[in-house]
């Protein structure tokens, strides 16, 4: 099965290689520079991750505010996958106005993400999500995915009970296995696929980006200009 079919009607997600790695390496350098934590842009990413892991919540919040300068992150990420994005959605897109940066700090109280599907937020069924780590992932530190068929079954089962993200879904966290990824790889998935992350052991923070996009020619659901903007691929 090719990647597009795998994402749309196969497992619902696929591991892909970054097409324009140079572009993405430059993005990582800019990220390090914009963090403003006394790191130069050529600093090893693991040293940056170690610094982040030692920061308190307020310092992390400050670093996240520094990253708001990064107002074209969505475009840069999508231009790292121009062929696949075009295959999925064509050239005219609606893209997330501001891509999401995720910094998970290890230790007690580390953010765990309970199982959910992206559709819950009101994005369109025609949306795709790219999730990219900025480094090789340690064991269990990535995202786990529940295959499309199983995810759809759960949606139907919960709907019959008048629930959305009820106990059946929320209790799935314990037996999940995150997908291992190396730097230069990403996961693209459709909004019906249940996913989340579990607590992991490491001395380093986990840093990843994600961005949502859809064809401009397909319907939207609840997310509008509050979340999306028009963008034409270069």
């Amino acid at each position: 099965m090719d990647t597009v079919n795998e994402i749309n009607s196969g497992k619902g997600y696929a591991i892909v290689k970054i097409e324009n790695l140079e572009n993405f390496i430059q993005l990582r350098k800019n990220f390090i520079k914009n963090l403003n934590i006394n790191s130069n842009e050529d600093e090893d990413i693991d040293i940056v991750r170690e610094k982040i892991a030692k920061m308190n919540k307020s310092e992390i919040n400050k670093a996240m505010i520094n990253l708001l300068k990064f107002n074209n992150l969505s475009e840069i990420i999508l231009n790292s996958f121009p062929k696949l994005v075009k295959q999925l959605c064509g050239e005219e897109l609606l893209i997330q106005r501001r891509a999401t940066v995720i910094m998970n700090v290890p230790g007690k109280g580390q953010a765990k993400q309970w199982p959910h599907y992206e559709l819950m937020s009101g994005i369109s069924p025609f949306t795709y999500v790219i999730w990219i780590p900025m480094h090789d992932l340690e064991e269990n530190s990535g995202v786990y995915f529940v295959e499309l068929e199983k995810s759809l079954e759960l949606i139907k089962k919960e709907e019959a009970q008048g629930l959305v993200n009820g106990p059946t879904v929320l209790n799935m966290m314990s037996d999940q296995k995150p997908v291992p990824l190396k730097f230069g790889e990403a996961i693209i998935f459709n909004p019906f696929v249940l996913h989340g992350n579990i607590q992991f052991k490491s001395n380093l923070a986990r840093i990843a980006y994600n961005v949502r996009f859809q064809s401009f020619k397909k319907p939207i659901l609840q997310k509008n200009t509050d979340y999306l903007k028009y963008y034409k691929l270069n």
Binding site: L94, L119, G122, S124, P125, L152, I155, K156, E158, E159, V164, F192, F216, P219, I220, L221, Q222, N224, T225, L228, Y230
Partner: peptide, 21 residues
């Protein structure tokens, strides 16, 4: 541009229908 995009009315659909759409 956004006003021209068709919208799925979430008050008139069900979760299980969204994949069919």
């Amino acid at each position: 541009k956004f006003m021209k995009i068709s919208m799925i009315d979430s008050t008139k659909t069900k979760w299980s229908e969204l994949y069919e759409i």
